[in-house]
Design a protein around this nucleic acid. Structure first.
Lengths: 214, 214
DNA sequence: GCTGACATAACCAGTTCTGGCTATGGTCCG
DNA sequence: CGGACCATAGCCAGAACTGGTTATGTCAGC
């Protein structure tokens, strides 16, 4: 028996090529396509596909909210999120909302097909890159303070300068170390704090520096 | 009569070429060179040059502190700071510490000579790029809140997303506008807040959002 | 009706950051 | 002594940001 797949995606070109990809696969069938969340919520409960591919970014209601509602109506349906970027917060929200997998749009056709097969087989497909982010997100949520405390002395110093807006080059000069070393410290800081940018790290830093007074 | 110039610069190559540049100029004479602030503070008061070229970044005591002390000992001496980068904070500190001019190291030999002549003639040389930063710094110091209030509604929205660590691309998607427009908003925000990076803008943003509660 | 501010959008050229690696030497602990 | 950090440092590729410029349409206010 064929696996029925529905697609929710506002970009008509992406939607079309996904549909063709699915229909061109032996045991898959694209049973419906929806340009927005509202349309999807109206029609998918009737169609009852096994799998839904859902774009995160939709006009009007976003993909995450759509997953939340759809999952309530169709708990058996597996939903795989599609996104062009990796935003840790949204990944986390989508998963708690009920998504089963999480794929990057730049994934190859083979990977997408494989992912659908995986979900149908009880798996939870996601790029390894995203998988790490998810683990990180959970760690962040369940244990946010601990990680910050793990920063070494040097890493704290570097973070201080990052918060002041210094360039790597300037931090290197201030601390009399090389640019490469600053770079390495920054990477370690990001790993420990589970963030992907200076701003996110600084936000944590600033909030932590006030919190201890409580 | 010749203009006597002293140089404070830790990099021996830069020091050497500056010295040669000065000595190769008709009415200039490089009367001393110093590899660090401590050496400069010990010897320059004895030599009493008219002009001092001072590197901002020195091992041990930095150039700004050195200016502060040197100016106390030799109020008549004009000090021109040399730096490889443009950090608004340091520029401001150097000027309040007593520096008269501010030059980028990547300035041409002609510009450097011209700057020394300018200082000796009562001027205050600095690259136009730096001049703007200084004006901005003063505006920032004398009127920090006003500028922030000038942000338009859209700019405030964008700044909110910047603070959350969103990429331009993600902000564009959220607000349903193009990447280029986000870029434009960000530039306007930086101009109004007189900053050069996301982190600096976000720092102001976060501090403002707490302040009104007081 | 013009001026000024705002929101939108695009182009280009640098610069900076992010994230994979690998690697060495030091320290501390079990 | 081995293992686990830590601090240091380098290479590389790709992504993102910064800054300068130009341009268009809208809308409020004079």
């Amino acid at each position: 028996m064929q696996i029925h797949v529905s697609i929710v995606e506002d970009d008509v070109k992406v939607r079309g090529s996904l549909g063709r990809l699915i229909d061109s696969t032996e045991d898959f069938s694209c049973v419906s396509q929806h340009p927005d969340a509202e349309n999807a919520l109206r029609e998918i409960p009737v169609i009852k596909p096994q799998i839904v591919l859902m774009d995160i970014n939709l006009p009007g209601m976003d993909g995450v909210e759509c997953v939340r509602r759809l999952k309530q109506l169709l708990p058996q349906t597996q939903i795989v999120m599609l996104t062009v970027y990796e935003n840790t917060n949204i990944i986390f929200e989508a998963l708690t909302a009920g998504a089963t997998g999480y794929l990057l749009k730049r994934s190859s056709p083979e990977q997408i097909i494989e992912a659908i097969r995986d979900v149908n087989g009880g798996g939870s497909p996601m790029s390894s890159h995203i998988a790490r982010k998810i683990v990180a997100s959970f760690q962040k949520v369940t244990n946010p303070v601990h990680e910050y405390e793990k920063l070494s002395t040097r890493e704290h110093q570097v973070l201080d300068y990052l918060a002041k807006g210094y360039l790597y080059r300037e931090i290197a000069e201030e601390l009399k170390i090389s640019y490469a070393t600053v770079h390495t410290h920054v990477r370690h800081i990001y790993e420990k704090l589970h963030v992907r940018s200076r701003t996110e790290a600084v936000t944590i830093h600033l909030s932590r520096r006030r919190a201890p007074l409580v």
